[in-house]
Structures are given as C-alpha cells and as structure tokens.
C-alpha cells in the first residue's frame, strides 16, 4: 500500500465523495417530496392523477436506475431536452426514489385506522385538518423505517452516476485504476469513502427503527 500516493489523491476522493453526497441528498429530498405528493394523491383518490401515480410507481420500481439515467442523459436530448450530468443524476434518482417513497408513505397512511380519521371528523375537523394533525403524524411513525431504508438504498444507487460522466467516487476510482494501476489503493479509498457516507445513514435508520418499535403505538 502506497500511503504517500493515498495522501496525494485524498483531496480528489474528498471532492468526489462530496459530489456523491450532494447529488444523493438532493435526489433523495426530491424523491421524498414526490413520494409525499404521490401518496396524498392515492389517498384522496384524485381521479386521473391517481392512475398516473400508480403507473409511475410501477414504471419507476420496475426499471433500473442506470437505464433511467441513460434514457434521460442520452435519449432525451434527441427530442430537445438537454440536461447536464449533475442535474441528470439528481432527476434520475428523484424519478426512481419517488416511486419507492410513494410506496413507503402510502403504506404508512394505510396503516392508520380509518376510525382515527372518522374520530377526527366527528370532532368537527375538516378533511385536511384531520390529515395534517391526526393521520400524517401517525403515518410518519409507521413509514419512518421504510423511508430510512429507501434513503440508504438511494444513496447506494448513486454509485452508477459515473455512467453519465459525473465525477463521483466510482468515476474517480476507475480513473485512478485505469491511469496508474493503483488498484489496491483505489479500492480502499472507494470503500472507505462510501462507508463514511453510508454508515451514519444506516446507523440512523437502525436507531430510528429501534426507537419506534420500543415506543409502540396502540391507541
């Protein structure tokens, strides 16, 4: 192991890790927003939109992110929609993640007994007040583990971003292996960088799940 070399390229990996983290976070936040809207549309049975959301969930969950990215990055410009790599990565992640997040939120909302809503309505709350104050807080607690699992999953999925020429961790490692044959050092740095991003997220997920399980719900 050539530690001098590692010291030299460390800033390079730092930059790449920051890119991975930044695009991943942006994509995940967008995905969560899409998921919340999608789940709300499904719950309120908004006529046409509900169909569209269901179809979208199916498509996004049944196709690989890499194929989605290729289509966005290389396919869409042919019909005049041009994106830069970073935007493409974020959009792809949001498209993929939106489907998963919709499912996570939907199952949380479904887990709240309809009597809870009726109870809120019978107290004179409006539909939207009942949703915000009664259903959503309970649904969030149920959804939290699935949402956190999605966060980790989506952050891992960013590892294909290099395919649309984003200079992320995979790109940097591949580059270093190809240019200087620094295989061992590159792989070590690659694994180390991903651990630094993913380990805290995964631990947060486990922690949340434990807390929620111990807290229990029960009326």
């Amino acid at each position: 192991m050539d530690w001098a070399y590692i010291g030299r390229v460390l800033p390079l990996y730092g930059k790449a890790a920051w890119l991975t983290f930044r695009t991943g976070t942006a994509g995940i936040l967008l995905a969560a927003a899409v998921g919340l809207l999608g789940a709300a549309a499904l719950r309120w049975r908004v006529p046409v939109i509900r169909r569209i959301v269901s179809a979208y969930v199916e498509v996004s969950r049944n196709t690989p992110l890499l194929v989605q990215l290729f289509f966005i990055y290389y396919g869409l410009p042919k019909i005049g929609i041009r994106t830069d790599p970073e935007f493409c990565g974020i959009a792809g992640l949001a498209f993929l993640g939106g489907g998963y997040m919709t499912e996570a939120f939907r199952s949380g909302i479904e887990a709240v007994d309809s009597l809870q809503e009726e109870s809120a309505l019978s107290l004179g709350l409006t539909q939207s007040q009942a949703f915000i104050h009664v259903i959503l807080p309970q649904a969030a607690a149920v959804s939290a583990p699935a949402v956190m699992a999605n966060v980790v999953f989506l952050m891992k999925e960013t590892s294909v971003f290099s395919a649309v020429s984003l200079m992320d961790l995979m790109f940097t490692a591949k580059d270093q292996i190809g240019l200087y044959y620094r295989t061992a050092e590159s792989l070590l740095l690659l694994v180390g960088a991903y651990l630094m991003i993913l380990l805290p997220l995964s631990m947060l997920g486990t922690f949340l799940e434990r807390r929620l399980r111990h807290a229990g719900s029960g009326t």
Partner: peptide, 20 residues
C-alpha cells in the same frame, strides 16, 4: 359539514384517542 359535526359529539367503542 365540519361545523354541523361539531354539534354532534361522538364517543366510539375503541375510544379512538389520537395515540401521538
């Protein structure tokens, strides 16, 4: 409807307190 429902109080079999 919300306003009308406030004129009618309802107590359910399973309490339906909001657990959170």
């Amino acid at each position: 409807l919300p306003e009308m429902r406030r004129k009618v109080g309802m107590v359910f079999q399973n309490y339906e307190l909001f657990p959170h």
